[in-house]
Computed example of a mutant assay.
Amino acid sequence: PLVETNLCGHATLATAHTLRRERGVVGALRFRNRFSGILTAQAHEDGSITLDFPAAPGTEVPVPEGLPEALGVKPEAAFRTGALGDLLTVLPDEATVRSVTPDLDAIADLTRREGLRGVIITAPAPGPGLEYDFVSRFFSPAEGILEDPVTGSAHTALAPYWSARIGRNGLTGLQASARTGLVRTAVLGDRVHLTGYAVTILDGTLHT
């Protein structure tokens, strides 16, 4: 990103993973975040890590002018996510989510105009029996993120929306980026638990 982000699942997950792997830290970790106060991360025996983040339930709003053209498809509904600063947009099905090729310049202009961090597109899984319940993608080109591979913070809005719509608390989201990623979610009042895995891909020392 080109700016400091207020809430980042990547950073929290990676830091918890590194503290456990490199420093041998066990149990719950507590992080102080400028946006949302204390965040906790709990490492599990299977290697997964659960992040405890504030929920960001959406408020339905009219589809912003220019969004259908920027996405190449008209959303069924749009929701602002409060302090998180994203626009959650619901598309008809997974195939549509996967096929979107957004006009990123137009998305950047729209998010600047509307005071948003980014745009989430989402749809239900195509049927039961899959390893996921809904799909999503996330674009934040004005902040330097053309398409994020997996966005923990976006799932603080996705989880409340889909839990209410599906009628089940524990769900799994598939972020359908080129890399993809699965995020297990659970809504607990005004908090959302996000569970996933981290992998170390680079190890080095920074010198100043």
Results as ranks from 00 to 15, higher is better:
L2C: 11
T5R: 06
L7N: 08
G9H: 07
H10F: 01
H10E: 04
L13C: 03
L13K: 03
T15F: 00
H17T: 09
H17M: 03
T18S: 11
L19I: 05
E22Y: 05
R23M: 14
R23N: 12
V25R: 09
V26S: 15
A28F: 04
T40A: 02
A43R: 12
E45L: 13
I49V: 15
T50H: 08
D52Y: 02
D52V: 06
F53E: 05
A55H: 07
A55N: 07
P57I: 10
G58I: 06
T59S: 15
T59D: 14
T59H: 13
P62M: 03
P62K: 00
G66Q: 12
P68Q: 03
L71V: 06
G72W: 12
K74T: 15
P75Y: 02
P75M: 00
E76W: 07
E76K: 13
A77E: 06
A78Q: 08
F79V: 12
R80W: 01
A83W: 13
L84I: 11
T89A: 12
L91Q: 08
L91P: 12
S99M: 05
T101K: 14
T101S: 14
P102T: 04
P102D: 03
L104K: 05
A106L: 05
A106Q: 07
L110P: 05
E114W: 01
L116I: 09
R117M: 12
R117W: 13
I120H: 04
A125R: 12
P126I: 11
G127A: 10
F134Y: 15
F134M: 08
S136M: 10
F139N: 05
S140D: 06
S140V: 05
L146R: 14
E147S: 02
E147A: 02
E147Q: 00
P149V: 02
G152Q: 10
A154G: 08
A157N: 10
L158E: 01
A159C: 04
Y161D: 00
I166Q: 03
R168A: 14
G170R: 15
T172K: 01
Q175S: 02
A178M: 11
R179A: 09
T180V: 13
L182N: 04
L182A: 03
V192D: 03
L202P: 08
